[in-house]
Structure formats: C-alpha cells, structure tokens
Design a protein around this nucleic acid. Structure first.
Lengths: 142, 142
DNA sequence: TTCTTACTTTATAATCTTTATAAATAGTGT
DNA sequence: ACACTATTTATAAAGATTATAAAGTAAGAA
C-alpha cells in the first residue's frame, strides 16, 4: 500500500508523523485529481477543524523535499500537488548510449493543449532527453 | 524584422498600438532572458516614468491572447513571458500518419531537472504527441 | 486636420496565494 | 512518564496579479 511506504519514507528521513501529515498524504494518494493546497485544506476541514493553511503548505513542502510529492505549476494562480508515482522518461547519452530513468510528472498539460489546439484525440506522448553522461563528459574533457 | 510583424499582427487583430505596447514588445523581442512582468516594468521605467504595473500585465495578457507571447510558469513566484518564436513539436495521427505542428514553449524546466537529477550535460530533447486526428476519429465512429 | 468614440492608461485598492513569526502543542526516543 | 525539539496554530506580512474608475489617447470618419 502506497500510504504505508510513504510513511516509512518519512520515518527514514526523520520526519515526524503527525495526524495532519497522515491525512494530507492519504488525501493526495487517493485523489486522482491534482489538488491545490487550498483543495487539501478544504477537504480536511471536517477532520481537522483547527488545521491552519500554513500546515498544509509546510507539509507539502516537506513532502516535496523528501521526494514524495511533485509541485506542478500550470498557468493558473495556484500550484497543484501530485503524489509521485512511477511514470518516467529516459535521458540518453549521445556518446555511449547509456539510458537513465528520469522521473517527471504531469506533462498532462501538453496533452490537454494538444487536444485543444489540434482537435486530435490524444492517446499518449513520448519524450526523450539527450545529452552527455558524466563519464563521457569527463573523458571528452581531455 | 520581428517587431514590425508583431505590430502588423496587432493591427490585424484590431489592437491599438500604444507607445507602451510598442516598448513592451520591443523589450520582449530583444531580451534573450524570460522576463517577469516586473522585470519589464522596471526596464521601461526610464522611458515611461508614469507607466503602471497594471499596464504591463494588461498588455502581456493581450499579447498572449493574440498569440505573440507565451506565459511560462516555473516553480517560482512570478510568471515569465516569452516572445513566441518558431520552435515546435509534432502531433501525430496513429491511424493515417498525419503530422500537425504543435507550438509549445518552455520544456526548459524538464532539461534543467534532467541535468540536476542525472548529471547529464543536456543538449536537447524531443517529444511527440500521439493520437487520432479529427478526420480519422469521425471515420472510426461508424 | 479636427472630431469623436471606444479603447487604454494610470493610480489605487482589493484579492489571492504563499511565507514568516511566535506562542502553544504534541511526537519520539530515553 | 520526561524532556527535547519539531510541528501546529493563529496571525500577520509579503508578493503577484486583477479590478475599478477617472483621465488620457489612438484611429478612423467627417
């Protein structure tokens, strides 16, 4: 279960597990949308009538620093937050061909815009990032 | 010259050309950075001592609506604005193979993060978006 | 050129998101 | 259960963007 793993990650990193953190994580994991800080705040109002907005922001920052959560900035006013799952891209070395996994969230926006602009029924996208890996870069430095 | 074309675009769209708009466009075209609204405001302070910040925001919105300018939202507080040039991606129909140009700005962030995470010296990236074009979609609907 | 009208600018205030602060509270290891 | 320290809360502050209304001005018509 994702929540348990997330809590383990917190424990390993020495981050205290408070009821608020538990609830925010749980909400993020179960929510298929990409909630804003305020969405989360409102959603947990019932369970935590006294919780401060600052708590939501603070903890989202903590989760982001630990790598559990991604912050997405679309064009609109407020950031959206996403529990990190396993979707990833590839970074490819142009010299030796090494491929490194690259986790990155939410190019959903690209697909949405593509639909909007082209009228295509978008099914997916692919992206590769090209460059030189550290090893090849240091060899080339000679 | 890009500025002249941009002004033509404004004229065609029925947007009045004011000295402020002229200056903001000129600044955006010449600036290789991705300035914030405040950057622009400060940069034009000398020429327009009485210009309001609202004017900058208003006109950036106008330019965006007309398609001359892209608004980029990185993680930080304020949006950055970019004069639209010709870089673009492709949207590909999986049935008939049609390729449609798809203009989209600033996946610079992806490259920055890839550098940060993998240590690769990033040179570029490619992205394609796949789906069904409207024509093929309507044929399939039978 | 001058006039006219509607769009723009300006100045200001308001709104909204996010962060900072300090006192009260509560996890966690001992 | 205790003590130490991180966390929460409440509040204020900061910063970006938008709304408003009055004054000004671009652009076409006369």
């Amino acid at each position: 279960m994702e929540l348990k793993e997330a809590l383990d990650t917190l424990k390993e990193t020495g981050v205290r597990i408070t009821p608020q953190r538990h609830a925010i994580l749980e909400y993020l994991i179960n929510s298929m949308s990409h909630p804003t800080a305020d969405d989360i705040y409102k959603a947990l109002e019932g369970k935590f009538p006294n919780m401060s907005v600052a708590t939501v922001y603070n903890n989202l920052r903590v989760f982001r620093e630990v790598g559990l959560v991604k912050e997405l900035t679309y064009g609109d006013a407020s950031s959206r937050f996403d529990f990190v799952t396993t979707h990833h891209y590839h970074v490819i070395c142009e010299i030796c061909g090494k491929i490194v996994d690259f986790h990155y969230p939410g190019l959903d926006e690209v697909e949405h815009l593509a639909l909007h602009v082209t009228g295509f029924n978008i099914s997916h996208h692919r992206m590769e990032i090209y460059g030189t890996c550290p090893e090849c870069a240091s060899k080339e430095a000679h």
